[in-house]
């Protein structure tokens, strides 16, 4: 038995919405029998699988910018939500306008909801560039210009032009839009999504707890002044230190929240490419593009296959030599037997 009590209890404290979500699923019963529909679906699935598996052979030797990725990118760029969070407080690009519309409506009623809301903004962006070095220089300049910082970054080590760069960038919330606009002009944006987490409830909850704890502290201090025996004094002091510890903890949590709200996070993925992925294409353009991309991937796959063969040439020579050796020995033995 190796229980980690802290972890088990922490899982017990997770958000109500998740527990509810799973609980709601408990009520759901769905019995599906595999009839003709199941067989048809299996057939369609098998065909799709074959269509998708065949190009993988060439793609595995080719560039990482596959056709399917391009379609996905274009689809996402058209404003498609990732579909993970249909009901929670997450907002994609399309739902962002709804939030601002609501804010505008509230502003009409002379209530400034924006100042009361505590929102943590996180975005994900995929950018294509033809010159990785220039883009990185420009990115660093922009981050420092807008008072942000790079929280973490990873640069792939493969050779140009297939390099990729991932970074988590924190930018002050008030400068975020300007930073984003400038960054979008630096390359070809193939994917962008925004998530907004509303922490207003927990923030106000903590504020209320703090107010109540401070009131408690004042009361306990009164008792402290009135305590007559040493025992009373000790117990009051113990309670006082508990309250102060809790106050400190909640104050730190509020500071953390403030930091999260005041700095927005951008998870950026930059890919170096020779040709940009076009967006908003017609069916025939996409068809032509798939054809040309397939051809390019095929050529690239063949090139890589040749490189692989050259790379392993010594091993291949050795195996061929051993093969020939065995063949000649076998042939000699057979000839001897024949002559006998």
């Amino acid at each position: 038995m190796k229980e980690n009590k802290k972890l088990t209890d922490a899982v017990g404290m997770i958000a109500d919405e998740y527990i509810e979500e799973a609980h709601a699923k408990k009520k759901f019963r769905f019995n599906f029998s595999w009839g003709l529909v199941g067989k048809v679906l299996t057939g369609v699935f098998a065909i799709l699988l074959i269509i998708n598996i065949f190009p993988i052979f060439f793609r595995s030797y080719g560039k990482s910018d596959s056709t399917s990725h391009m379609n996905y990118a274009a689809e996402s760029y058209d404003g498609g939500s990732n579909g993970y969070y249909p009901s929670a407080s997450y907002a994609t690009e399309s739902s962002e306008s709804v939030i601002y519309d609501e804010e505008a409506k509230v502003n009409d009623n002379k209530v400034d909801i924006k100042t009361n809301k505590k929102l943590i903004l996180t975005s994900h962006m995929t950018l294509e560039t033809q010159d990785m070095n220039t883009l990185l220089d420009s990115l660093l300049q922009k981050v420092s210009k807008y008072g942000g910082y790079i929280q973490s970054s990873t640069m792939s080590t493969s050779s140009s032009p297939n390099r990729s760069y991932d970074a988590s960038i924190r930018i002050p919330a008030e400068n975020y839009s300007a930073f984003l606009e400038e960054l979008k002009g630096e390359g070809n944006t193939t994917y962008y999504s925004e998530e907004t987490k509303d922490i207003t409830d927990s923030y106000t909850d903590i504020q209320a707890r703090l107010t109540s704890l401070k009131a408690q502290e004042a009361k306990v201090l009164e008792f402290y002044d009135r305590a007559e025996s040493l025992e009373d004094l000790m117990s009051v002091e113990e309670r006082l230190s508990e309250i102060r510890y809790e106050i400190e903890y909640y104050e730190t949590q509020l500071k953390n929240y403030d930091l999260l709200v005041s700095y927005s996070t951008l998870n950026l993925n930059v890919r170096e490419t020779v040709t940009y992925t076009p967006v908003n294409r017609s069916f025939f353009e996409r068809l032509w593009h798939s054809f040309t991309d397939g051809w390019n991937d095929f050529i690239s796959g063949i090139e890589d296959l040749i490189i692989e063969i050259v790379y392993n040439i010594w091993g291949i020579i050795l195996f061929v030599a051993i093969g020939f050796g065995i063949y000649f020995i076998y042939k000699k033995i057979r000839n001897r037997k024949k002559t006998k």
Partner: peptide, 24 residues
């Protein structure tokens, strides 16, 4: 708990439900 919460929010709905059913 908050960190786990954040992690769960990044999971797919189905994965999250399965996780909560098992460990909650």
């Amino acid at each position: 708990a908050e960190t786990i919460d954040q992690f769960l929010s990044e999971l797919k709905t189905e994965e999250r439900k399965v996780f909560v059913c098992r460990y909650w």
